[in-house]
Design a protein around this nucleic acid. Structure first.
Lengths: 209, 209
DNA sequence: GAAAAAGATTGAATGAGTTCATTTTTTTAG
DNA sequence: CTAAAAAAATGAACTCATTCAATCTTTTTC
């Protein structure tokens, strides 16, 4: 049996991730102690550290899975966006936002964001940053697609505009998770308002409402 | 002598803030122990906690002072901005960036940002957020001023545009402090590029180069 | 199949932030 | 001026993330 060790490893890894995600959601990140996670996963505290560098790493791992799904959910919209620029932007952005709280609480997002800022060189933070970059690219691609279709004036730097729109929607999402009382609808409404001017200005004249 | 207690309090507060800022710059945030800060400030560890809720609070206090100066430095530019839209934006943004590393290291910025995300309800985090809001308003005011002057087309929602531009410059600054090797010049160049499309589109036709 | 090597697990020890019952200092009341 | 009350300072004790030397398990070697 060549893979006994590998199989045990994969199994332990899964148990740790499940135990941690469950506890983070149930009692919050800070209150979830490594000792508790280890106990639920049926391993020792020391073993936890053979699988993850520190407590934050496992949270960022959970967040990465969620972002990956968000990215997937955005693809069909980039493939076949609504004709009007503002509608296309809003469709993609709201898709992101709707997916964001599926598995993660606001507190988990806050903690993950804090870690990715504070320890930018840890492997999982790099992964988080890379996923953010791919989301940003997706927005730029949507704008590029609209330009090819003729809905956006030619000559505009779609990458620059895409970065600005993404950075804005990202910051607004950060504000959203920082405020435990803000509902998703408020976030969506605000961001839609912020995007309206740039969408209008970019639109080819004949297509502007 | 009515104010003995008040005077001692102010004095201790100053000593703590000075000791902490010095240690954060000299050895970094993590390596600066409360015990060391207390020793330099000539107080006990317990007393530290009578003045600040936790280690992070004192860092956010130091950052707040810096942001206040940045805000001050932006005023003259909003009062009397360059005529071209892109030049005005770049002047204000670069002013912000140039001031940002006067007293604070990148590591201090990272830690402060992480704390303000993770503990949004602590008093000093609220202060930090409020200052960010005032910076955002300053950008919107610059754009409003340019619109009044006729450099920007009437009818554009200057607040929405200002928020988007600010959120973008803020995110880019975050990326800058996350990357220990990125020079200020790269940050400025990137952000200038990102702002060019929106500046061009907003500009009144006769004033576009 | 046994012994040696390699790889993992373990949990007690470490270290730093934070708490809190006690002590000290300052103010107020009589 | 003295005693009681209020406010502040103190540092030992506590908690929890993290480490690491010892132990155990799996794989390889012959």
């Amino acid at each position: 049996m060549a893979g006994l060790r590998a199989k045990q490893k994969a199994d332990r890894n899964r148990r740790i991730l499940e135990a941690a995600t469950r506890l983070f959601r149930e009692v919050g990140y800070d209150a979830a102690r490594i000792e508790d996670i280890a106990q639920i996963a049926e391993i020792s505290v020391g073993t936890f550290y053979n699988y993850y560098e520190n407590k934050g790493d496992i949270l960022v791992a959970a967040v990465s899975m969620e972002v990956e799904e968000v990215l997937e959910a955005g693809k069909p919209i980039v493939e076949n966006p609504p004709p009007m620029v503002i509608d296309a932007l809003v469709a993609l952005i709201n898709q992101y936002y709707d997916h964001s709280l599926f598995y993660l609480s606001k507190e988990m997002w806050r903690t993950a964001m804090a870690i990715s800022i504070q320890q930018p060189d840890s492997p999982f933070s790099k992964r988080y940053t890379e996923l953010d970059g791919r989301l940003c690219d997706q927005v730029s691609m949507l704008i590029g697609k609209l330009q090819l279709r003729g809905a956006i004036m030619p000559g505009i730097d779609t990458v620059a505009v895409g970065q600005m729109i993404f950075n804005n929607l990202n910051t607004m999402f950060t504000e959203f998770v920082r405020d435990e009382t803000m509902p998703l609808e408020t976030l969506k409404r605000e961001v839609t308002r912020q995007n309206r001017p740039i969408a209008t200005m970019m639109s080819s004249p004949k297509l502007t409402s």
